[in-house]
Nucleic acid binder design. Sequence first.
DNA 1: TAGAAATCGAGAAAAATTTATCGATAAAAA
DNA 2: TTTTTATCGATAAATTTTTCTCGATTTCTA
Lengths: 223, 223
Amino acid sequence: MKGKPDYNIPEPTLRRLPRYYNYLKALLNRGREVVSCTHIGKDLELDPPQIRKDLAYTGIRGLPKVGYQVEELIKSIEDFFGWNNIDEAFLVGVGNMGRALIDYKGFSRYGFKIIAAFDNDSEVIGKTFNGIEVLALNKLTSLCKRMNVHIGVIATPDHAAQEVADMMIAGGIIGIWNFAPAEIRTPEGVIVQNENLAAGLSVLCKKLQMLKQSGKIRQEVIE
Amino acid sequence: MKGKPDYNIPEPTLRRLPRYYNYLKALLNRGREVVSCTHIGKDLELDPPQIRKDLAYTGIRGLPKVGYQVEELIKSIEDFFGWNNIDEAFLVGVGNMGRALIDYKGFSRYGFKIIAAFDNDSEVIGKTFNGIEVLALNKLTSLCKRMNVHIGVIATPDHAAQEVADMMIAGGIIGIWNFAPAEIRTPEGVIVQNENLAAGLSVLCKKLQMLKQSGKIRQEVIE
DNA sequence: TAGAAATCGAGAAAAATTTATCGATAAAAA
DNA sequence: TTTTTATCGATAAATTTTTCTCGATTTCTA
């Protein structure tokens, strides 16, 4: 039904890998040199065979009885995702979410850099946040073309999302990271990653609700 | 699978339901009264049987040849998640992400409300954002107990996450929505929902990378 | 150096999730 | 009224993802 290109790497794996990465970085900071799947599994509450399989996708090989070299493993994940070649992106919508994304220093670690922001509110146009200038929205399409940017971040209210997406696509953007709670329609060949905070929140609240209904609630609060 | 609530709801379903909800709200705004899975499927690029199955978890029943009443469906999802009884939450970490969450008006729709924020930076303690006061971090545990709050949001840097989680748990919190890129250890009976922005970003970048490698890149940019 | 222990890699088995099928039913058309 | 069509609900099939199993390999210990 969905005309998606066939990626043979499971998406759950793709989502777990950055988690291993963060964890491994922390391990390295603490001076650890080797680590086994058994060990990772204990800390991350995942099954060792699954971790082994996930890591294998990046092409790493471990040593029986020992595990993996932490540093090598980190590099393997970085190479797998191509985090060494920085992807430049444009962000549209300098509200709170937009600013949080602009200000977040951590994305450079993932080979991702927001190089300009756009808005149509004259209050913010011309201002600079975290070294990133806010430009007028009507320049978006032409600048995408001129600067050959092909990733766009949408952090606008939902009603503006489709229009912004259209402008991005007209400018040649092929990957959209969408934070607006709206569905956006795109032509074949454009990849949309929806980041829906409500999804995670709903999962949490539903699980709590079920926990409460089951009566297995934690009561041993230290008074 | 009729009537009785099912405690084995697939997590993918739980994550899709809020998406249907947003979509249905938009439909209702445009004046639509009934909708079929076929129709939803076209707009959301999902298979109708899957949508039908997802919606069935909320207990709704459709009519052959017609579909579902939009308004009824919206209500069914709301009831399913319990979005009518507001869950109150404390947030810790009033950096950019924390402020984005505080400022985001949309959570009330999901029965979720941040009622106070905490930080240990004297620069922000005492300030108010979007009507929410920032309190000193050392009051967190006692206030959790006193106000009987049981959901906590962590929006601190990674190195503070575990400590904050421990304070929350000591105060009786049983659900943690974690935005810090760190693993937190919790006792049995505490639910942690990790919101890892890097995961979504990585999926997007990897898919783009694979798209580029496959040579199937979109070139028809309107010049 | 021999034997034990830990862990890997590969592939099989199991579980979860998605997709397809089909009879039933309601509305619309003939 | 009868036939046709769209859609539902339930269930079966297929696919994907996770978990298990087991032989092989490396290190540690005696």
